[in-house]
Design a protein around this nucleic acid. Structure first.
Lengths: 180, 180
DNA sequence: AAAGATTGACCGCTCAATCTTG
DNA sequence: CAAGATTGAGCGGTCAATCTTT
């Protein structure tokens, strides 16, 4: 006992500033995008990602687990959200033919209309809030930085199906609004 | 009527990838940092920012509005959180002497102990999850990118006191753990 | 028994309404 | 009456327990 713990490596001024800024972005940017979607289309960003993910998936169909991964959400959160989307007629669910444990979420025609209506405004907001203020090389840089950080970040335990990750997006989108 | 709406400017493949990555980071990074603080110190990141902000403020004191700005939170959220922190004995509140409309939040000795205990682990997590995987020039780049995006982002309406913004951090920190 | 998914109780955030001070 | 702050109702997310299919 009485083991001396190592002096913490504090952040340099540059790092501290970058971190404070990043913290601000992580809070305010999603809030701004959520506000736009909610106001114009009555959707949360999470709901939009669900519908958008399905719109890009083969046969507009995706297993709940894959969809959870795609949306960066827990399976239980997704389950709740999909239930509500189903009540709104935007999605339906059925067990996968090949294995009854898997549940497929399927975009309905009405769900398609919802994404299609929401996509332009959302993409416009993303463009205005992010890419319009960045130089092209900053976009590249942002992508690389994000990739590195994300690769170092395991899914917040209790999310996710252990086995097959990322079946989504491994083929090309059948059609628009595959935009995010 | 029948006004033709402009064809939406979709995202380029690079932009789309950057945005998907960023979306992942915005969800998973806060979750990871929250998990560390919760597990090791029983604090949410928001609570930590509150205590940390006070620890850096003059006399360990800050107006509720300034603190809300600093923490990127709504005044009402802050009010609820500070109430709980007060019940835990980490903070106390009193009206500002010069103007009874202003409420000052003040860090207690116990609150100081809490931040001091939590800071090393939190900073270590920030370092491990972000700066350890980035080259120095990427840190610079991240800071610039974040600044641009943030500058373009007004506070989500209903947050914030209209007048005096950012009284916090305009003087130098009295002491550690001023490390965010 | 394990994987995939769902459920419900708890907790915290949001929004609008309210209170208080100047 | 306006600015600053608080309150409470409603809603949505989390976590652990449960259900179902293999």
């Amino acid at each position: 006992m009485n083991q001396q713990q190592p002096e913490p490596r504090w952040l340099s001024p540059d790092e501290l500033r970058a971190w404070m800024t990043l913290a601000g972005v992580m809070v305010r940017l999603p809030a701004a995008l959520d506000a736009q979607l909610q106001r114009d289309n009555g959707l949360s960003m999470f709901e939009y990602f669900v519908l958008s993910g399905l719109s890009m998936a083969e046969n507009h169909t995706s297993r709940m687990s894959d969809l959870a991964e795609f949306t960066n959400g827990s399976l239980s959160r997704l389950s709740n959200v999909v239930k509500r989307l189903e009540q709104r007629g935007a999605v339906r669910r059925e067990p996968a033919p090949e294995n009854g444990r898997y549940i497929n979420a399927i975009l309905t025609a009405h769900g398609w209309d919802l994404v299609e209506a929401a996509a332009p405004g959302h993409v416009e907001a993303v463009r205005r809030l992010i890419f319009d203020v960045l130089a092209p090389e900053q976009v590249t840089s942002l992508g690389e930085i994000g990739d590195r950080v994300l690769a170092n970040l395991e899914p917040p335990s209790a999310w996710l199906s252990p086995s097959n990750a990322g079946a989504l997006l491994e083929h090309d989108p059948p059609a628009p609004p595959g935009q995010a």
